[in-house]
């Protein structure tokens, strides 16, 4: 449940950012972010909120892992 997904920010309007994960787009809140977020940054997203900035290469590494974990979870649910 505490999984946080790294996502690329592609648009920002006030405290709402649009993120892109594997082509899927979502609006998330930047309310909890301690630092300024810019377009192109990668952020960790949990339950609709960005909680931390991460470096691009870290984001790419973790995404492949998270994909595996999510697949494992889906197999289990199906």
């Amino acid at each position: 449940m505490c999984l946080a997904i790294p996502s690329r920010v592609i648009r920002i309007k006030d405290m709402i950012a649009t993120i892109d994960v594997y082509g899927a787009r979502r609006d998330i809140s930047l309310l909890l972010m301690p630092d300024e977020v810019e377009i192109g940054d990668y952020v960790l997203v949990h339950a609709g909120f960005a909680i931390q900035k991460v470096q691009e290469e870290v984001a790419r590494e973790s995404l492949s892992l998270i994909k595996q974990v999510l697949e494992a979870t889906e197999e289990e649910l199906s």
């Binding site: 449940m1 505490c2 946080a4 809140s29 909890l32 949990h46 339950a47 609709g48 909120f49 909680i51």
Partner: peptide
């Protein structure tokens, strides 16, 4: 539900 990852949200 959830721990400190979730309660701030």
């Amino acid at each position: 539900t959830g721990f400190e990852t979730t309660s701030p949200s």
